[in-house]
Simulated scan of single mutants.
Amino acid sequence: MTTVPRRFEILLVAGFTESDETPPTSAHALRSAVVEATGETGESGYPRYAGNGMEADIDPATRTVEALLVDGAEIDYGLSVRVVAAPAT
């Protein structure tokens, strides 16, 4: 049985390339938000997460963001999203 994480942190960054040696952190992100599972499934078929102005469909197995709204709008081209484990509370 696979458990779906209840929380993630979404990092909105200016760009990302495979050659980046270290993953981005919230200190280097343009914006970050801790999101929690809503219990709903998004249009993409993946679990929906929401919080702090962000709403995303996230594949929990690969941490791939399949859909994202920031303050109700799609993000601009040139921006990238990374999903990391949510900080401990």
Rank of each mutant, 00 (worst) to 15 (best):
A33T: 00
T62P: 07
A61V: 13
E40H: 04
L79E: 10
V13K: 00
G78Q: 11
R31E: 10
T41E: 10
V13A: 00
L69T: 14
E43N: 05
A33Y: 00
V83K: 03
T62G: 08
F16C: 04
P60W: 06
M54I: 13
E36K: 13
G53R: 05
T62K: 13
G42Y: 09
P5D: 04
R48Q: 12
A27F: 05
T89S: 13
D20Y: 15
P5W: 03
T22Q: 14
A29S: 14
T62S: 15
R82N: 08
A56D: 01
Y46G: 05
I58H: 12
A56M: 03
G72M: 02
P24R: 03
T89R: 14
R63K: 13
A85S: 12
I10N: 00
D59W: 08
G45Q: 08
E74I: 04
R7G: 02
V4H: 05
A61C: 09
E40M: 02
I75K: 12
L30Q: 13
S26R: 15
Y77P: 12
P24W: 01
A37P: 01
T17C: 06
G42H: 10
A73K: 14
E66P: 00
A29M: 07
A61H: 10
D20M: 14
G51C: 03
L11E: 00
L68A: 09
D59K: 11
A33N: 00
G72C: 04
V81A: 15
V34W: 05
R6W: 03
A33M: 01
A14G: 15
T89F: 06
L69R: 15
R48Y: 00
T64F: 11
G39I: 02
M54G: 03
P60Y: 06
T62W: 09
S26Q: 09
P60K: 08
A50V: 07
T2E: 11
L69D: 09
L30Y: 07
P23L: 12
A73R: 15
T89M: 06
N52L: 11
R48C: 08
G45R: 10
S19I: 02
G45A: 09
L68T: 04
E21S: 04
S80I: 00
A29N: 08
A67N: 10
R6I: 05
R7L: 05
G51M: 03
H28R: 08
G78K: 11
E66Q: 13
S80N: 09
P60L: 04
I58D: 10
A27N: 08
T22D: 14
A14S: 15
D71V: 04
M1D: 11
T41S: 11
V65H: 06
